[in-house]
Simulated scan of single mutants.
Amino acid sequence: MALKGPCPALLLLLLVLLPACLALGQRETRHEKFHRQHVDFPKTSAPDARRYCNLLMPRRNLTTDACKPTNTFIHAGPAEVDDVCHSGGTLRTENYYDSKVPFELTICRLAGGAQRPPCNYRGRTSTQQIRVACMGGLPVLDGTNPGVLG
C-alpha cells in the first residue's frame, strides 16, 4: 500500500536536503583551504594568464566578498606540493619550508579599480621555488603563503 498525504513528499525532501546540510556543517581544514586556493593541477586551460586569473579567482571563491589582491596558483600535483613540508623542502624558519625544486606557477594580481566583485586580474606565469607554511607535515594557509622565491 502506497503512503498518501504530505509524508512521502516530506521524507523525500529530507533525504535530498540531509546530505547538503551535513556538508555545510563540515568546515574546510587549513590544509584543504591551502589546496583550494593555491593548487591547480592539471592546470585549467585558458587562452592567457589574465583570463586564467579572471576565471580561477572566482571559481576558487577568492572574490566572494572582496577582491583578493594577489594569489599564486601552483601547477603541480597535491602530493608533490605537500612534499615541500618533507623531503621536497628545506626548513628556513619556524614552520616555513622552501621547495628544493622550482614549480610552474601563475601569479594573479588585482589590476586596480574596484576592490569589490566583479574583480579584474592581471596574470603572470613563471617557474620558481616556493615557500610554504607547514603544520603537521602539511602546507597550510598562514595569510602570507605560498611565497615565491626570487
Rank of each mutant, 00 (worst) to 15 (best):
L141W: 00
N95M: 08
L62G: 10
T90F: 02
R116L: 15
G137H: 05
G77A: 15
M57V: 12
G112L: 06
Q37R: 13
E80A: 11
K68M: 12
G89N: 01
R27F: 03
A79P: 04
F41T: 07
S99V: 09
F103L: 04
C134S: 06
R36G: 03
F41Q: 01
C85M: 05
C53N: 10
T29G: 04
F73R: 02
R122Y: 11
F73W: 01
D40N: 14
D48N: 15
F34Y: 11
I74W: 00
T63D: 14
A133F: 05
C53H: 05
K33A: 15
T93E: 13
P118D: 02
R27H: 09
P69M: 00
A66M: 11
H35R: 15
H38D: 04
H86G: 15
A111K: 12
E94R: 12
T93Q: 12
H31M: 04
R124N: 08
D40A: 04
A114E: 01
I107F: 11
G89T: 05
P118L: 05
N54H: 07
K43M: 14
R92P: 03
Q129G: 10
V81P: 03
L22G: 12
M57K: 03
S45E: 14
N95E: 11
H86Q: 15
A46G: 01
P117V: 06
G89A: 00
T29D: 05
T64L: 10
G89C: 01
Y97W: 12
G89R: 02
L141C: 11
R116K: 15
Y121C: 07
S45N: 13
T29L: 03
D65Q: 15
L55H: 10
L56M: 15
L138G: 01
E94F: 07
C85L: 11
V101F: 05
C119T: 04
E94Y: 07
Y121V: 05
R60E: 08
K33I: 09
R131V: 14
S87K: 08
A111I: 02
I74P: 02
A23T: 11
L22D: 07
V140H: 01
C119A: 11
K33M: 12
P118I: 04
I130N: 09
R36K: 11
G88H: 07
L105Q: 03
P42D: 05
F41E: 04
P139Y: 00
R122T: 14
R60M: 02
G89H: 00
E80L: 03
A79F: 12
I74Y: 01
